Amino acid sequence: MAVKEPNGYRGNIKETMWSVWPTWESWNWTGSTDYKGEAVPSWEGKPIDVEVYTKAPKVKLYLNDKLVGTKQVSRDTQFKAVFSIPYEVGVLRAEADGKSVTLATAGEPARLRLTADRNVIAAGGQDLAYITVEVVDKDGRVCPDAAIPCEAVVKGQGQLMAFASADLKDREPKTSSRVTTWKGRALLVVRSSKTKGKAQINIKSSLPTATLTIISK
């Protein structure tokens, strides 16, 4: 399930022959600031399109436990159900074939969450660990509008190779130790040293410092 960015929320959206409409796994449309620091207005009460992707024949969509509607899904609909509903803070839930998926409005950023694709890598200077940095609220929900400047510090038996986000407008070098999270996320790449031991990763920001340990063996 994902939500089509409303045209005008962050300016007019222009499509080309090769583009797709920006669609996000987010139910945060309460207004924020854009990459220039300019205010983005709330979309409260305005229509917004929710897309649910499934091969199940029927989908039900709920907003704050109230049934929004039911849609039939087939090859003719590209296995996609589209619901247009007024935006309201809360929890979206789609149900199909006894399974469900949710999108919830995140609160204010509370901390950074670090998740490594693996916590043990091979010593020798050629192995890599990929660490996802997420800005989350007090309930652990990713804050999809969070743009938090971060700095990575790697100590011990490891080397910082890259720290970046998917923001195409970010001109900070990918090999820099600094990045600003985009859509609440960033990615850190750490390379093993040639010596066995531990690498401690600290991510500093305006939020509490987040720490993770990677072992080279």
Rank of each mutant, 00 (worst) to 15 (best):
V136M: 02
A106L: 02
T181W: 03
A96W: 14
S26M: 02
D127T: 11
K138I: 11
A129E: 01
Q159G: 10
K55Q: 08
A147V: 11
V135F: 02
P149S: 11
G98F: 08
W27K: 02
D137F: 04
E25W: 06
F163G: 03
K204W: 08
S165K: 07
K99S: 08
D127L: 00
E51Y: 11
P41Y: 00
Q200V: 15
A39H: 02
K80A: 10
E15H: 14
G197C: 01
T30E: 14
I48W: 07
S42M: 00
S42G: 07
L188S: 02
G45D: 01
I85L: 15
A152N: 03
T77H: 12
R113L: 13
V89M: 10
S19W: 01
E134K: 12
K198C: 06
M161G: 06
G69V: 11
V120D: 05
K169R: 15
G8A: 01
K14M: 11
P22M: 01
G125N: 06
V135I: 09
T181Q: 03
E88W: 06
V154T: 04
W21I: 01
P144Y: 07
S42W: 02
W18T: 09
V52P: 00
A39S: 07
N119Q: 13
T211M: 11
E38H: 10
A186G: 00
R178Q: 15
V91M: 13
E15R: 13
A123E: 06
V40R: 00
L67R: 10
R93W: 12
G31R: 05
L187R: 03
R171S: 15
A129F: 04
S216T: 14
Y130H: 09
V52N: 07
D76G: 09
S205K: 06
A166L: 13
